[in-house]
């Protein structure tokens, strides 16, 4: 029961309208081979949960340019001017969350939580229309958990079982996203034999990972 598949086989699982978590802080820690393969497919109306939407014509920015994304949930989209334009042209819906609220909502989704109260964003535009509650004299807003049909994540190394370790600051959102989707596909630089990653080192245990692809090119 090998989890190893090709990028093409992975992307064939994604349907138009799917909700997909994509790892990365900018392009760092983003599964660029899976994204490039997705960009060659016909799927559209995607709902993307990712901190950013790449850069113009790079990473998730390619999907934006090709109008394959219907909605984006993330924390910082202004680094890609094409996202701003698509939003203004009403081709793209955007839901903005503070970065810590977003990462915690994904963690909560993967951990089976029904949401949480956070003090972050109280009294700001982002908290408009959110339930506010005072606990022990402090104001909080309710945040629902985030889950998805797919998570496309990037790791440095997998063993044959799908245990993962990451590469420096390329870890970012990937470990939480690995827990919060129905189907989790990890793009890795390298696959090693079981036992070659120490149990103390493993960041994402294999039970979270459904498929592994090896990155293509550089």
């Amino acid at each position: 029961m090998s989890k190893l598949i090709t990028c093409e086989e992975a992307v064939k699982k994604v349907k138009s309208g799917s909700r997909i978590m994509v790892g990365g802080f900018g392009l760092v820690g983003s599964p660029l081979s899976l994204i490039a393969t997705l960009a060659q497919s016909e799927v559209k109306d995607l709902e993307i949960i990712s901190n950013n939407l790449g850069e113009p014509g790079r990473g998730l920015g390619v999907l934006v340019r090709q109008k394959q994304v219907k909605k984006a949930i993330g924390s910082y989209f202004t680094s890609n001017p094409e996202v701003v334009k698509a939003y203004q042209d009403k081709e793209l819906e955007v839901e903005l969350l503070p970065q810590g609220t977003m990462s915690e909502a994904i963690r909560a989704g993967g951990a089976g939580m029904g949401g949480f109260y956070t003090p972050v964003s109280v009294g700001t535009k982002i908290a408009e229309n959110k339930e506010e509650r005072t606990l022990n004299g402090k104001k909080y807003v309710f945040q629902e958990p985030l889950k998805a049909n797919f998570a496309l994540i990037k790791a440095k190394k997998a063993d044959q079982l799908g245990n993962l370790i990451y590469n420096k600051s390329a870890r970012n959102f990937n470990p939480m996203m690995a827990t919060a989707a129905d189907v989790v596909i990890a793009e890795v630089d390298e696959i090693v034999e079981v036992g070659q990653i120490s149990p103390e080192e493993i960041v994402t245990p294999h039970l979270f990972v459904d498929y592994i692809v090896v990155k293509e090119g550089n």
Partner: peptide
């Protein structure tokens, strides 16, 4: 190192005793 950047997405280094962690831990 393309996998080692700061919040401004600029390349950085790390010092002895540094650690890496995921975004949920970072915001915790």
């Amino acid at each position: 190192d393309q996998n080692l950047v700061n919040a401004g997405k600029l390349p950085v280094t790390v010092l002895e005793g540094s650690s890496f962690f995921d975004s949920a831990s970072s915001f915790a």
